[in-house]
Write a protein that binds this DNA or RNA. Structure first.
Lengths: 205, 205
DNA sequence: TGTTTTTTTGAACAATGTTCATTTTATTTG
DNA sequence: CAAATAAAATGAACATTGTTCAAAAAAACA
């Protein structure tokens, strides 16, 4: 089935083309400002074609959402091999921040936009695979820290959530312009500086 | 000037009426789903009237944004009188969480929506008064903790930002459905539980 | 009461997501 | 190779949004 195979491949290519343009435009102009028409125009296809390959705009966001997590996951390849769990935890935090600040629009799509999560709340069997995996990895690191006598008197899951939230919160506030708004002494470096405060606390744990 | 005075009052009343409807609808349906038309219909005025009282939809959001901070500020009246700064810090955290979880849509408008901050980034002289004040109060509490020998080896401003981020991050992730998405053991109580982990850490500081 | 000022109106516009009957292109078949 | 069939692409059309503005209605004033 040569022709059929090629057709499948061509379809995938066009789908990828749409996704790539969507990501490009969306990173350039933001989610709301990126219209289906602009995506279509960018790849020299008509509006209708986009709707042949994606159910609606949300479907595109969902795929990009997944792609974003693949990218974040690749960021975590390095610390995955750090032996000491406490060191790994710190390395992961630094990389998480690096990712968020280098890809603010992608980060927003991944962690603050409601849209990609609506699928989950609708169908209960549905799972947010990427998120669950990433969280599980973080949690296992925290558990390893605990088994090495760190974090005495703490519960793994809430503690993991707290640590994730700490880093996410700083990135989120910074990306949504709340750090400049609040007139910090140096808003540019506040996220890194804030994380170092946490590291100072960790060193005692 | 009886008539003129009354006119001023009437104008204010209508403005308040618009804002109240806007907030109601917006809390019920969300920001994006609340249309100017629905606001107008709700108060039995025409679309055009809304635009007489507010430049655009963003102007409405901005006023609600300010209102939200007044509300949060009133939440903080109680811990304001707690003597011990460390206890005050903890009480503030609990109340912040309470506010966020009780008013998730308002919270989103206040801390994650980009729109209300766009005014600031445009005009540099402009200041985000409410945010600056709230942050200053938190920071002064942290500084008092430091002056009582807590938080040794820490810098006030980054530390304050880190603490704010920690609490904000938990609320933000929960409100944007990331906690249910990640399959936590009990998503409902994870924010409170996460904060208790932080309290445990604070007790050692 | 007639005039002026203020307030309200809602039709109209542009931009957006989305649909679908039609057209174009590609593939298969006789 | 030509006709028939299937697949893919099209873009006009619709509904819904934020927004504007000339006209109408209401209120205030003289």
């Amino acid at each position: 089935m040569s022709t059929a195979d090629r057709k499948v491949k061509e379809k995938e290519q066009l789908k990828t083309l749409i996704l790539d343009s969507a990501r490009k435009l969306f990173v350039e102009k933001g989610v709301a400002q990126t219209t289906i028409r602009s995506i279509a125009q960018h790849i020299d296809y008509s509006v209708g074609t986009v709707y042949v390959y994606f159910k609606d705009k949300n479907a595109i966001l969902n795929e990009l959402h997944t792609q974003g997590f693949a990218q974040l996951s690749s960021f975590f390849e390095v610390p995955r091999h750090v032996e000491d769990p406490m060191e790994r935890l710190i390395a992961m935090g630094r990389l998480y921040i690096k990712f968020a600040l280098e890809n603010p629009d992608m980060y927003e799509l991944m962690f603050t936009l409601k849209a990609p999560m609506d699928v989950l709340s609708a169908a209960d069997e549905e799972e947010w695979k990427e998120g669950t995996n990433a969280f599980a990895f973080l949690k296992s690191t925290v558990e390893q820290c605990i088994s090495q006598q760190h974090f005495k008197g703490h519960q793994p899951e809430p503690l993991t959530f707290m640590i994730w939230s700490l880093v996410h919160g700083m990135c989120s506030l910074h990306i949504s312009n709340r750090t400049t708004g609040v007139r910090l002494q140096n808003a540019e470096h506040i996220v890194a500086a804030g994380f170092e405060e946490f590291v100072t606390i960790l060193k005692k744990e």
